[in-house]
Design a protein around this nucleic acid. Sequence first.
DNA 1: CGATCTGTTGATATCCTTCAATTTTGGTGG
DNA 2: CCACCAAAATTGAAGGATATCAACAGATCG
Lengths: 265, 265
Amino acid sequence: MRGAVRPASNPLVAKLSHFLPLADEDLDALAELTAKTQQLAAHVDLITQGDVPRSPFAVLEGMACRYRILADGRRQILSFLVPGDICDVHAIVFRTVDHSIGTIVPTTIATIARDKLLEIRTRHPRINAALYWNAMQAEAIQREHIVALGRRDARGRVAYLLCELVWRQLASGLAADHAIRLPMTQSEIADMLGLTPVHVNRVLQGFRKERLINLGHHRLVLLDHERLERIAELSKDYLHMSGAPKEIERQLVRPERPRGEDRRS
Amino acid sequence: MRGAVRPASNPLVAKLSHFLPLADEDLDALAELTAKTQQLAAHVDLITQGDVPRSPFAVLEGMACRYRILADGRRQILSFLVPGDICDVHAIVFRTVDHSIGTIVPTTIATIARDKLLEIRTRHPRINAALYWNAMQAEAIQREHIVALGRRDARGRVAYLLCELVWRQLASGLAADHAIRLPMTQSEIADMLGLTPVHVNRVLQGFRKERLINLGHHRLVLLDHERLERIAELSKDYLHMSGAPKEIERQLVRPERPRGEDRRS
DNA sequence: CGATCTGTTGATATCCTTCAATTTTGGTGG
DNA sequence: CCACCAAAATTGAAGGATATCAACAGATCG
């Protein structure tokens, strides 16, 4: 109720629904949670490394990234944040945050009050479980990132990133078929993948010549996603999108007042 | 009470105490939690990628690692698990786990019953907060790993790993000064850092010639940790070991029955 | 419609890998 | 305790993937 965001068009709802079906009351709660939105210009920091932690937020439109600046000015992007992503800005157990978060293009976020989030997690076990799943998925994505940086060559890394971005946006209802908006620059892709912009460019040229992708004007189409997945040595499974295991669903889908889910340790 | 592990010698207690001081009742609870120990030989998998999730466990002695095997047999190690580390084997929100966990040397672990863990987290807000901090630290370590793989050269990566291992073991009371046991092979270091064993060897040789380290018989001594930290472009801060922010400590240290800490999202 | 950022291309340099051989270490059984 | 074996560490030589440097073209946006 009161939703500033219609449930159907809320990428957060779309994403969390992949884990388990949400009831109307859950949708209302999520709409309330994402009601307080904020428009940000491109290349604006939401938080800068060294700051004290801030409140969590969800990305509703646009794109942002978590990144780290090294002493000599080089940058490593830790993750891209697309609509539907929710980001707990380091909780409050740390005195300072160790990385920055900044927008890539004009972006709409919903800032989330920590106590309201806690309240909703207590009262909505399905949302609680879905958010927990979401956090586990974020960790799985980080692991994949490590594997890509550690053991894949430049073609594999680029293919991996393109597949992941498409899949994640499919999950949030933002991708038609295998086409997405790809608003970041090749420099930003390079900073995500541990490569130079020049080399990212060459790899992308290669993919175009091989008719694997169509890319221009910040619009990406995967023409042959199967081959790209093979180049990336990636299986869609790693996003763990097949929904909740039966026992969890059984617990949560019928309204029996169960405790949601235990926490990660 | 009943502790199979004496509090003073329990690396988990040592580690968690860095976040906030634990009361006697907390120590008892942790001793109980880590009472059910298990001895494992070297090179044994606790869990293999594709399995269904298992119960959490803590490493008490020895060393293990989380890793991923690629289609062509190459391996990427995601993290080393040292005594004091606690590992939530993917919770139960995933149907299968996406990476394996295996021992590197003979290792003692404590398996932890999920419901007992949940119960202790509910009844011991300090432990709950410390475990939450511990999870945040694990994520910070993963971020550092990504930065190292993406933006540091071989020397920087090796220096980073050596510093991190020493610091983490200092935190768990396992390092005298800047000396630790380094039980893994150079191949395993290579698989952690995205390098070849040959090149890891050359880097280590270089460090020895420059009198930065002493390494032999699986014993590592940092002779010049300041210079190593500079090579690694690393500051100890990233482990966030300076203890809980005042507001959290205020809430938790006096026994007022507060709710522990909200979760990450 | 000019200024600036982004993308593109070529030439060269370099860090790291690959391949191959040898030495050393650690473990095991006789 | 020693001999033996496999695994790990070490060293050298050569090749390859990516970085670096540099210049230009094209896009985007006041």
